[in-house]
């Protein structure tokens, strides 16, 4: 899914403004569902075969031949729909102490680019996400990440998230936990 060799015109091929607008709205709405803790509706935006992946990020030298990220390394999320559902189930418990009083989530999504793929109803979507979490009196944590999604139109005509790779900017998570979806 490299951009190399693609001209702006080729990128735009098969991607009209209406589609870009629709996908932007899909991502903005997803962000608001997360901010409002509407997790069941959020899960409903996922394709059944979704892969939701936030790998651990390592600081390695440029000369290092090892992959920058790898499926065999530890990750924050390397989830299918079953795992995501388990996480949501925990967040919904009245004894989820870290969520009560609620974490005040803020998801800002930007720099959205849409690319066509070989498959007519699937698009690669790049975006940036800024997540702020405020808790209790003065706790404030910032997460920033680059995302690469695969968005698919299913048989009902609805857009679904089929893949998400979240490249966190921090190698050492500057927070006590990651009780947020990005």
């Amino acid at each position: 899914m490299s951009d190399a060799g693609k001209s702006g015109a080729a990128l735009a091929a098969g991607v009209d403004r209406d589609l870009v607008f629709e996908i932007e709205q899909f991502l903005y709405r997803e962000a608001r569902l997360l901010d409002e803790e509407r997790y069941d509706e959020w899960l409903a935006t996922m394709a059944p075969d979704v892969h939701y992946w936030m790998p651990g990020i390592q600081a390695r030298y440029r000369a290092d031949k090892a992959d920058l990220i790898s499926r065999t390394r530890m990750a924050y999320f390397d989830d299918d729909l079953d795992y995501l559902t388990k996480r949501v189930e925990r967040a919904k418990q009245t004894t989820a102490w870290a969520e009560d009083p609620p974490t005040r989530h803020f998801h800002m999504v930007s720099n959205i680019e849409v690319e066509a793929t070989e498959i007519p109803d699937e698009w690669v979507v790049h975006s940036l996400v800024l997540n702020l979490r405020h808790r209790n009196e003065a706790e404030e944590q910032t997460l920033t990440a680059r995302r690469q999604d695969l968005v698919r139109r299913d048989e009902t005509g609805a857009l679904k998230l089929a893949r998400r790779l979240i490249r966190l900017q921090q190698t050492v998570l500057q927070a006590k936990n990651m009780n947020a979806f990005l």
Partner: peptide, 9 residues
Amino acid sequence: VDGNIKSRL
């Protein structure tokens, strides 16, 4: 397992 996760508390 390869890699580890680091976080600040």
